[in-house]
Every structure is written in C-alpha cells, then in structure tokens.
Design a protein around this nucleic acid. Sequence first.
DNA 1: GTCTATAAACCGATAGAC
DNA 2: GTCTATCGGTTTATAGAC
Lengths: 205, 205
Amino acid sequence: MASNTRERIVNTTAELFRRQGYVGTGLKQIVAGADAPFGSVYHFFPGGKEQLGAEVIRVSGQFYEDLVTAVWDAAPDVVTAVADMFAGAAETLRETDYADACPIATVALEVASTNDVLRAATADVFSAWIDAAVDRLTDASIEPAKAREVAIATIALLEGAFILSRATRTTEALEAASQTAVAQVRAALPGSGGRAAGGGRSIAR
Amino acid sequence: MASNTRERIVNTTAELFRRQGYVGTGLKQIVAGADAPFGSVYHFFPGGKEQLGAEVIRVSGQFYEDLVTAVWDAAPDVVTAVADMFAGAAETLRETDYADACPIATVALEVASTNDVLRAATADVFSAWIDAAVDRLTDASIEPAKAREVAIATIALLEGAFILSRATRTTEALEAASQTAVAQVRAALPGSGGRAAGGGRSIAR
DNA sequence: GTCTATAAACCGATAGAC
DNA sequence: GTCTATCGGTTTATAGAC
C-alpha cells in the first residue's frame, strides 16, 4: 500500500483552505495538522505550495461535486434537487459554526489576480460544476442554452449566499438564495409558461 | 488641511485588498504604494493592520454602496436598475482585467473564521447593502418581506458571479446572473402574477 | 521515504531620532 | 507628523542525515 502521508497532507490542506484560504495557510500548519514531517511536503510536491494548492483545489472540487450531485440525483425532480442542495448547505454551515462552506471560493478570489496556475485550477473546477448541473437540467428537458444560464446562476446564488451567510453568521442568505434558485429552475421547465412563483410542483426529471 | 497621508494609505490598502485580499497584502506593500513612511501606519492606526483593515472595509463598503445606488437611482425602474448594475459590473471587470470586483468579498471569506473584528465589519457592510436595496424595492411597491428576500438574492447573485467571472476570466457568469436577477425582481413586482420570464417591461418605481 | 536543521526572505510591530 | 533601523517571529524552501 502506498504512503498515506501524502493523502493526509492533501486532506489537511483542503480543510485549512476552506477556513483560512490559500495565503493564510502555512506549510508548517499543514504538516502539523497532518502529523507529517515537513520534508514530506517537498517530497510529494516538488513544486512546493503552489503544486500542493493546485492539487487540493482539484481534489476538493471533485469531492464537492460528487457530494452535491449525490444529493441532486437522490431528489425526485430538479426543483426539489436544488432546494435540497441549499438546505443541505445551510445545515452544514450551521453545524460547522459557519466554517465549512465552499472549498474553492476563498482561494479563487485570493488567487484570481495573483497566481494564474491556481486561478486556472479554480476555473476548471467551476467549469466542471457548471457542466454537471447543465447535464441534469437538460435531462429535465430544459433547453441547453437556458440550462447553462440557470446552472451558472444557481452556482452563483450558492456561492454568493455562502459569503453573506459566513459573514453574518446566519443562514438567511442561503434561504433567500434558495427561493430564487428554485423559482428560476421552475420557470425554466417546459410548460411552466415562465412562471417563477406559485405553488405548482413540477415532476419533471 | 489635515494630512492626506492617512487617506493615501486607506485608498492604497483598499485597492490592494480587492486584488490580493487581507492576508495577502503586506504593510510594507501598502506604504510603498501609498508613498508613505512605514511609521505612518502605526501613527494613524495604533491598532495596526487589523484597525486599518476594519476601516478600509467600512470605507470601501460605503464607497461601493454609493456607486451602486447612484447607478440604481439613475435607472427609470427597478428592473432596469438591476440590469444596469450587472452590466456596469461586467464592464468594470473587463476594463480592469478581471481585478476590480467586490472590495469586500475576498476579505469576508478570508476572515470569516479567523478574525471576528474584521468579520463583523464585513457583516455590517453587507447589512447596509441589503437595507439600501430593500428600500428601493419597497419603493417599487414590493412587500417588505419579499423585498428583503429579493435584495439578498440579488447581492448573492452579484457576488457569486464575481467569483465565477474572475476565475474564468469571462463575463458569462455576470450575464447569466443578471438574467436571473432581473427575472426575480420582475416576478416580485405587484401585478406580475409571479411571472419571471417574458417580455413585459414594468414601469414600477 | 522519513525527518531535522537551517537558510534566506518576509511579516507585523516597535523604538527612537528628527 | 515623518522617517529609519531593527526586533522577534514567521514564511517558503533547501540540504543532508538517517
């Protein structure tokens, strides 16, 4: 079996990135949390902090995508899926004292104008999320162009609500964003007549 | 006339925070950019980097609020106002090579779980933005509870789209978010019947 | 592969001359 | 109010023993 030191380093880094971001997380803090010798970082990641950061972004992005799509695919329809996603995010935020939101957003904003390697890694993650959401929306008979628009807006609503919720330490923003996200998905469904509000529950899948 | 060294320090810090965040911006870099002696930071801000950071968050938040409300109030109706706000944000992002988005979001995510003084400052800014948006939505005859929900979702859409746009270096996310923001505001207007899509242009103010 | 010691640069913060 | 020198601590990164 391969060394799990590398795995511990990646997992510890991922958790620290979520709470403190890329710049605020030191290599010493990482090896302390992972209970690994300092040299291991450069043994497994010769490219140093940047290489470790890029891998953590990709791994965290994939993990989060798997998590969200599992919730999504367990729901009976896309409207419920989106509502469940926001509800789950709110619950996680409360349970973790508003610490564990998106593992990518903080790093994405930090590096967007300062490190193009890491910026590209965050862009790849977001693109993968958008594609996954588009697939599920088009499966629910939403036209591709509209599906992409709705997918992007849904992710934007979630990310933006994370910022507001973590700053204010309430889940109000996630709940407000959920209402809008659900309404726009419902309005995009065929036969909805573009109706955004109202109690009609779609069963489109 | 009072010293403008303090003002230069605040303005330089605000610009650096937008591009690099709080942690990534050093005091030495600030005084270099502000063309000020190092000691001036501690002369004007005895509380050090944290006190300077808190003031910059509040000043930047107020400045950005004034900027957005000026655009908003120049529009003929709330639907146009929201569309103009997103269009202006997209233009600014393109013009500044995707650097100048929200001056608060990056810092908010960085400090949310690590510095409660600065977290509270970002929360105050977001609360003020929400209140300002609620005022304008209720002026357009939207019920207070609905107005607050729409206000929060609109800000979340903008902030989330900033993340995606800066990471991908395209304005697609801002355009998609704009569509959803406009639709939800339109749906919230009285007499809309909750209609989110469609070509009817409201003149409610 | 594991681990320690250390280099070189940078950080925020302080003291004190002017 | 301006400016410099410097402190103590931290950072990323490297060298080299085991």
